[in-house]
Amino acid sequence: MFKILKKEELSDLVILFEIEAKDIAKKARAGNFFVLKIHEQGERIPLTIADFDRDRGTITTVFQKMGKTTHHLGTLNEGDSILDMTGPLGIHSHIENFGKVVCVGGGVGIAPTFPIARALKEAGNAVISIIGARTKELIFWEDKMRAVSDELIIVTDDGSYGQKAVVTTPLDALLRENQDIKLVYAIGPAIMMKFVCVTTEKHNAKTIVSLNSIMVDATGMCGACRVEVGGETKFACVDGPEFDGRKVDFNLLMSRQRMYIEEERVAMERYKEKSGGN
């Protein structure tokens, strides 16, 4: 059992948990993820490790309420426990002093971008960060991101906060003006990562993305998470989750993410009925 020590509602939809997981915290690094299963009948879902505190023995995750499992997860409170957690999973980010880098975090993807930006900053990089969301309410961790970035750009689709733009607008401008940008990190919805890669392709900028495919065991055993990178099939759980974004087949990723859309609807409706519209 893994106890939730802290819960923070970053918005109506986005929740932060700090969870007691001593051994996972000890090994966690930027770019890793973990899998959790809330209860006996639950499904295994991968979530990103947004931060870790080795002294406290905790990991922090941020998730958005989407389907049944994340809605259920969002009803848990401080002091409650999660039945199963496995991690740290995936190959952690490769960090070195590249020079000048851009970190793009979209929506709930701001959370896993943070430890990567921090590690890049600590390694001596000049870090420019772009965080974006649909609307002001969904922007979080502005302070944390600012603390690890030399420059922070905020965008919202509706212009309610920061620039009224999508993340690719300032990214395109940055790449145009700074020929010395060595690397772009982008984490967010598949569609965002796809268009980030369209932008970086234009400027021939190296791009790393973190893929959020459907997983079951997340240890390489099942292949549910397969993605195509440079025409080759890869398992996001053990070969990734980070890949060279310009080689990723995002259309396939998005199609595979929709595989259970009907089952997700059924599960959600049933859950709403049972929990009284929560």
Binding site: G42, M221, C222, A224, S255, E263, A267
Partner: peptide
């Protein structure tokens, strides 16, 4: 990699370990 193609490992893991045959009683589809 089309939807609907499972490795036997995945198909059996969903059905056996995760009890997907009892969906939606169990959450794994």
């Amino acid at each position: 990699n089309l939807n609907g193609i499972y490795s036997a490992n995945e198909f059996l893991t969903r059905a056996n370990l995760m009890k997907a045959y009892l969906f939606p009683e169990y959450d794994t589809p």
